[in-house]
């Protein structure tokens, strides 16, 4: 098991593109860290630098106590699970799982025992003699997991391992991976662009955008106190409502409605989660509802307030109709952002 430490790690590709701007963070032993962000933000690049598949342009990477910048991937004591599984197509499941051990000159009786143990853990016993092409997507994913766990690594790396699975299987595998990581107590770095995966699996989330780390925090911190308008709109489905507001030194207004007390002065961006706006006949916020989205367990009302788009999350038993309504805010619902930089105030 190991902690991981990045010190101003930076990646510039040979064509001059800076995919990861200098990034520093620590991952503690046994922690499950999720790297999340939109496509092209540099998540895979970051993960691949940790794996050793990509050179680090600047900065130091520690796994355990040692700098591993120049250590070969095979010697970093890591295991990686890829998006398209990357199983060896011509080898049986058994051989796939055992290949890394065989290359480490581990005696074959020991390999057999370890493969059997991993297969047990992952319910792969019936498939050990099949080729990957004879397995379903979920089973292939399990084999890829098996290949990672037999190695008994200090660090698991996952690059969007579930994105080729259907929604139902994804939910199930999400829980399985998390449970497995808990049980083995192995440090893990998990890359995804799915914010639900990030929220549900992570001990800590690292949100990236355009090669820059926007925020590092627990799922609840990232959700409730986003560090920037980018994080606010990226995390959560539907995303946080962002309004153009105005602060006069004591109060913050959206349109004419005072929503929050703050000492800032000037233009601000006001962020409010859809579920923090509650229908209230005496509430201060006037909303005109255009569309009602029925989601079964709850409903989303889309409309406008002071000419700005707004989404509200209401319980399924709320008698929603289109047209004007009023609402109030839950306490501490408001996040304020600098309207120029997007940073949290």
């Amino acid at each position: 098991m190991a902690q991981v430490k990045l010190n101003a790690v930076r990646k510039t590709y040979p064509n001059g593109f800076e995919a990861v701007k200098p990034a520093s963070f620590d991952i503690t032993d046994g922690e499950f860290v999720v790297l999340v962000g939109p496509s092209g933000c540099g998540k895979s690049t970051m993960l691949r630098m940790i794996a050793g598949l990509e050179d680090i342009s600047e900065g130091e990477l520690y796994i355990g106590e040692t700098v591993v910048n120049n250590v070969d991937p095979a010697d970093r004591d890591i295991a990686m699970v890829f998006q398209n599984y990357a199983l060896y197509p011509h080898m049986t499941v058994r051989k796939n799982i055992g290949y890394g051990l065989k290359n480490r000159k581990i005696p074959s009786t020991e390999i057999d025992a370890k493969v059997a143990e991993a297969a047990n853990m992952l319910n792969l016993n019936d498939y050990l003699d099949r080729k990957p092409s004879q397995l379903s997507g979920g089973q292939r994913q399990r084999v890829a997991m098996g290949r990672a766990i037999v190695r008994d690594p200090a660090l698991f790396l996952f690059d969007e391992p579930l994105s080729n699975l259907d929604a139902k299987l994804r939910n199930q595998m999400r829980i399985e991976i998390k449970a497995l990581q808990r049980r083995l107590g192995v440090t893990a770095v998990y890359v995804t662009h799915d914010q639900v995966e990030a929220m549900t699996m992570a001990d800590r989330i690292i949100v990236m955008n355009g090669g820059v780390i926007e925020q590092i925090g627990t799922p609840s911190e990232v959700y409730h106190s986003p560090a920037s308008t980018f994080v606010a709109s990226f995390m959560g489905a539907p995303p946080m409502n962002l309004f153009d507001g105005h602060a006069n030194g004591t109060e913050v207004h959206v349109g004419e409605t005072p929503l929050h007390r703050h000492t800032h002065q000037g233009k601000v961006t006001v962020g409010i989660r859809p579920e923090d706006i509650v229908p209230d006949v005496t509430g201060p916020l006037a909303i005109n509802v255009n569309i009602i989205e029925e989601l079964g367990a709850h409903r989303l009302l889309h409309g406008h307030t002071a000419d700005q788009a707004v989404t509200i999350h209401v319980a399924k038993d709320f008698p929603a109709v289109t047209g004007p309504m009023t609402a109030s805010l839950k306490p501490d619902a408001v996040s304020l952002f600098d309207s120029e930089t997007g940073h949290r105030l």
Binding site: A51, L53, D72, P73, A74, I78, A79, M80, F82, Q83, N84, A86, L87, Y88, Y99, G100, N103, R104, R147
Partner: peptide
């Protein structure tokens, strides 16, 4: 042949000849 296969093999400790 997908790049990932090469990378998986690298992590599995297979050198160029292997």
């Amino acid at each position: 042949i997908p790049e990932e296969l090469v990378e998986a093999a690298r992590i599995d400790g297979a050198g160029p000849i292997k």
